[in-house]
Design a protein around this nucleic acid. Sequence first.
DNA 1: CCAGAGCGTTGCGCTATGTGCAACGTCCAT
DNA 2: ATGGACGTTGCACATAGCGCAACGCTCTGG
Lengths: 254, 254
Amino acid sequence: MSQTVDRALSILPLLAEGPADLGQVADRLGVHKSTALRLLRTLHEHGFVYRQSDQRYRLGARLIALAQEAMENLDVREIAHPHLVRLNERCGHTVHLAVHEEDEVLYIDKVESRYPVRMYSRIGKPVAITVAAVAKLLLADLPEPERRAVAEKLDYPLYTPRSTPNAEAFLAELAKVREQGWATDLGGHEESINCVAAPIRGADGRVVAAMSVSAPNVVVTADELLTLLPLVRRTADAISGEYSGRTPAKEASS
Amino acid sequence: MSQTVDRALSILPLLAEGPADLGQVADRLGVHKSTALRLLRTLHEHGFVYRQSDQRYRLGARLIALAQEAMENLDVREIAHPHLVRLNERCGHTVHLAVHEEDEVLYIDKVESRYPVRMYSRIGKPVAITVAAVAKLLLADLPEPERRAVAEKLDYPLYTPRSTPNAEAFLAELAKVREQGWATDLGGHEESINCVAAPIRGADGRVVAAMSVSAPNVVVTADELLTLLPLVRRTADAISGEYSGRTPAKEASS
DNA sequence: CCAGAGCGTTGCGCTATGTGCAACGTCCAT
DNA sequence: ATGGACGTTGCACATAGCGCAACGCTCTGG
């Protein structure tokens, strides 16, 4: 809507790929160098980009600080974190926390597996929305028309043969997940990785976040992972209770 | 330099304080509502702000994703991390990694103390530049005129009676730090917290980052903490070696 | 040692761009 | 019903941002 700002903001993802010099930025934006320079200067003044010693630009510190501040304000995260850690201590696998935002589902917290073989993921990174167990839970909670609208807008990449192939299959899966109150992803994203997930609900019963335990099947089989379901659900419920203000956030123990 | 972008970017730190509605944003920017609306819309399109269900604006997901990506590209961090973890496993205290950027020093990595009493800090947050041990190391490495310029530009808040009081004292401290090749902060920021820090150098010998071990003196006295100095320095040197390409990043062990 | 290329930077004139205003729609509270 | 608070829209004006061309610098190769 606003050309100048639009261009300026487009610079940031571009720089996220790695440092770039003025010419490169100007080219990729399709504007004159002088224009790119002015934009970069403004970004620089605000600390969003940093000019390194070789004169090239990289993303700046303020961006990192802001994002961190943004995450601290996500209070689900704050509340959930100790629970996630405790769950990880019990089972040893990677634990994720995710929220739904703007047709994307993204991880907002993560506790690393204690096994040497780990799965790759990143806080802040959008998840594979059509297959991830947490995504299913978050989307399954939408009102039916909206759910359908989203499902039909999505792409259905075939990460593996077990990936959700199309909108109908996805909607069916969502219905099932909504019904049973938990979700899985058995090799739908990475052939050898399975997840079990459970929803976290606010005081009004709506799903505000979802958490999952993931493990490669070289460590545990899908069946073994499923035995953790009750524990995962209990953890999610504990977080829900605390988040919605029912449980008074008791200290440690278990 | 560019008014529109300048205004748009100013919205972000403002939203970092917490969600705000259109009117609040317009007021704090000193512009007409319609103008604020257009800016917010543009930010929204890029995912930098998110409109929550009550219509108020908050910082958006893309911001978090970008920052995370930016941090992954900081390769000192990547290289240093396992060393920091190992150091933490040995001594149990909080370990920090910091870099200098644009008159600020900020933490880019952190391994939490394993003791119950922890210090508060945050990745991405600017550190107390006049007292933190890591800040001293990073600034001490600047060429003398620049060092002086920075020292004179700074404020010298008296966090505690032991805080660096003014530019002269700070410059003297920097000279000492530069000389000895390591730094401490003994209760200069928080009365009861001490740190020991050592520099990480690139291939050209310049300080690219600094790391520290911090502990409250209810856990260990300053003297006890100082006994860790050799270990901290060895760790920092190991990182330096790997970062500058001298050591071929050997696997585990110690 | 000079010619040239490649880079960031500056000043300027033009017009597209972003601006503030005023009017509208909607929702809530009185 | 009626007022206020809020987000939203269309519009006419002028300013703010644009691309151009020229400049200065550094580095390279002849």
